[in-house]
Design a binder for these strands. Sequence first.
DNA 1: CAGCATCCTACAGGATACTG
DNA 2: CAGTATCCTGTAGGATGCTG
Lengths: 126, 126
Amino acid sequence: MVTEQGSAFERGKLTDPDCPTRLVLDRIGDKWTVLVVTLLADGPLRFTQLRAGIGGVAPKVLTQTLRALERDGLVTRTAYPEIPPKVIYELTELGHSLRAPVAAIADWSERNVNRILAARTAHDQA
Amino acid sequence: MVTEQGSAFERGKLTDPDCPTRLVLDRIGDKWTVLVVTLLADGPLRFTQLRAGIGGVAPKVLTQTLRALERDGLVTRTAYPEIPPKVIYELTELGHSLRAPVAAIADWSERNVNRILAARTAHDQA
DNA sequence: CAGCATCCTACAGGATACTG
DNA sequence: CAGTATCCTGTAGGATGCTG
């Protein structure tokens, strides 16, 4: 399988530490980002709603995740100067577009998780 | 949440710590797995060839990565009892099939990395 | 050549408590 | 409500040296 021109695999950029794929992988590879994006996919949510939707995230960590998402232009943060405060998080268009590739991962995962688990069990026997 | 039947996003499994997507994300989210899979995509390679192809991996870490891939049935390891030793790593069919979703990530990354970087810079100004 | 054994450190992630 | 401020720990990843 020497060449398969056009595929993302032949561009050889993955060896570069600043490679785009690495950048994105570092983002979605963390513990909560994909979950947050998924929850926001159906519409804007408040901080507490996200917290509840996830279950078991320390507020500090959720804040970190959201701030990073905001910094990368994937999420907007809108604070309403009320008392008590209200903050709305919403996916940007860029954030929404991320759903497609993530769905590709999710679909592959669900179709193949059994094979992985089986291989794992078999391997752990021996 | 509201329901948008069919999409991988509404299955609500991501909240489950044992969710398939989390499992795969934990795999490909690490530092070297995607790179190894990419290198093996064009054909089998020896340990040293992988090392060279990556550049800067500690042998221990590369071994860990390969063992994990082997355990999950994504890579086969074939040791030839010669002196000096020769070990060939090769993608399984399952391993090859992983290339597609990873390519989806890679494509999205390359198309949008500029937007992310721009958002990042803009955000860091303010 | 293809690794294992050992030691080490940075940092992601978490627990807990407090506040504008 | 939506966070900060602190403190703490597990572990991924790395550096170095040795061996069948």
